[in-house]
Nucleic acid binder design. Structure first.
Lengths: 145, 145
DNA sequence: TTTACTGCAAACATTTTGCAGATGT
DNA sequence: ACATCTGCAAAATGTTTGCAGTAAA
């Protein structure tokens, strides 16, 4: 769970202004249990009359992505989505294809695996991405009720 | 290396017609050493006067993707790209961020790793994606000349 | 008071679609 | 012959940008 305050604090620390739209977006993003598309975010903001433009939403998402507070995902469907996440450490996501809830995965051995592949293929790696898709335990349980 | 013939054979087997545009695209795709964007593909087709429309290119890429002859990648930059690949077995790609050359990676232990994560998180996985980015040995070598 | 930020609207990029005609089988 | 494909052009998406005004620090 990512809290609004953490996002705002990070923005402030990085020298960004805490504007009304940014506060609103931070709250919205923090309230999301899982991933969301830019469009969903804007829609939700509009529904709640928060007065946040599409352009501002994109601009904020960009800033937040840079700070590592949000990450961009590419769903199997091809659509782009974002997830709030803890900045700092490199990590990966596992996302529920039903409810969208997502969890962060720390190392788990992927780094080692990537290093091994690099050695085998002769590539000098400078990045990788692992995304896992499936049903979270809740959705999985519901399916059999 | 993926050959034109293989692509055409797969299309035919799947019941698709071997039209002129499809033959042209198959050849273009097979000639690519690495990944390519839809736009690059169309541009190349136009340069060679192959008479392939943008719409047709997209439609063909869709078909080829369905058949597993091509896969969609999401580059770190955010742009979409495609790579020709062997259909069948689940695999992943390692792509060179300089020349675009890409190689397929067979299992390498990712499946086991994914299974372990599934167990730990309680998710029932139905898919995952691993993409590795870096410099291939050739580009890496050139950098130090 | 200064500079970052926002809204607006237009521009852009990318992918999809409807339809009439061309073409593979 | 007949269904599948293609080209064309328009539409639907998704994202970015310039600029003048607003607001945070």
């Amino acid at each position: 769970m990512v809290e609004t305050m953490k996002i705002l604090a990070a923005l402030e620390t990085a020298g960004y202004r805490l504007t009304t739209p940014r506060r609103a977006l931070a709250a919205l993003i923090a309230s999301r249990p899982g991933h969301f598309t830019a469009d969903e975010l804007v829609g939700e903001a509009r529904r709640q009359r928060l007065g946040v433009t599409r352009a501002t939403a994109f601009r904020s998402l960009e800033v937040l992505t840079e700070l590592g507070l949000v990450e961009r995902l590419d769903m199997p469907s091809g659509e782009h989505a974002f997830v709030a996440c803890d900045p700092g450490g490199h990590h990966h996501h596992i996302v529920c294809s039903s409810c969208g809830r997502s969890a962060e995965i720390q190392d788990s051995g992927i780094e080692a695996l990537a290093a091994r592949i690099a050695r085998q293929t002769g590539y000098r790696l400078d990045g990788h991405r692992l995304e896992l898709y499936g049903l979270c335990s809740t959705c999985n349980a519901e399916q059999y009720q």
